[in-house]
Write a protein that binds this DNA or RNA. Sequence first.
DNA 1: ATGAATGCAAAAACTTTGCATGACG
DNA 2: CGTCATGCAAAGTTTTTGCATTCAT
Lengths: 138, 138
Amino acid sequence: MTMENNELRKAGLKVTLPRVKILQMLDQADQRHMSAEDVYKSLMEAGEDVGLATVYRVLTQFEAAGLVERHNFDGGHAVFELADSGHHDHMVDVDSGEVIEFCDPEIERRQREIVKEHGFELVDHNLVLYIRKPKKKD
Amino acid sequence: MTMENNELRKAGLKVTLPRVKILQMLDQADQRHMSAEDVYKSLMEAGEDVGLATVYRVLTQFEAAGLVERHNFDGGHAVFELADSGHHDHMVDVDSGEVIEFCDPEIERRQREIVKEHGFELVDHNLVLYIRKPKKKD
DNA sequence: ATGAATGCAAAAACTTTGCATGACG
DNA sequence: CGTCATGCAAAGTTTTTGCATTCAT
């Protein structure tokens, strides 16, 4: 029994071919953050015949099951990433598009403090730092 | 000459009725964060006949001119806010949709530190805390 | 007057849904 | 085998675009 099957069972999801293939794709693809369209096209290129609607449905189920995280970066379309490693935030190089992951305990702690000071509890958060390599002249 | 006209001129935008009305609406509306649809409906209710396409176009121009900021909170549609006050981040109540603005110097400072440690400079950032009123039982 | 801005409608981009068929347990 | 998942196509949302007309300078 494969790794993916176990993940799906643990999540309470029936082990179907599309689900396994999508999970594998998220795990193996070069890019860690993929849109539904990205996943769909990658599957097609790999010769896997999965409908785009199924990709959307499965990704949504994966999100509900905690297997993936959905991010709403700038640009109108959602991207998904495997929730295998722990929590982290993102830096995006505005020139190259490169994405760097990081996690800073100080910021995380301060976020919870701020929310608490306002009488709320923190459900989730989204932090993206847009960065660039320093240039001598701009 | 009104305040709005000056803003538009400074931004290098021709002073047209739709632009003035949209800018006024963003300034006067009860909600500080409005979607294009919000702005459009408010204008209609106010008896101002502006096309939805124009609202989108004008808001995009305003963003390019630095008059407004566009935010991609969760939920598929962008919201815009007047860029009149200084920088701040946002808390969004996931139950009510209420938006609270805040600015925390400690987080701001730490962001710059982290970026610097990675050999980059900070161009911009986007922080949204998704929050909820605590409940005794969930 | 002349070039830019607008309104409308059509289209594009992204995502969800209905329903008949097919696959998992 | 019964039920849930899938595929396809159609519809829903949000946003953009083409084009004739109107408006600002």
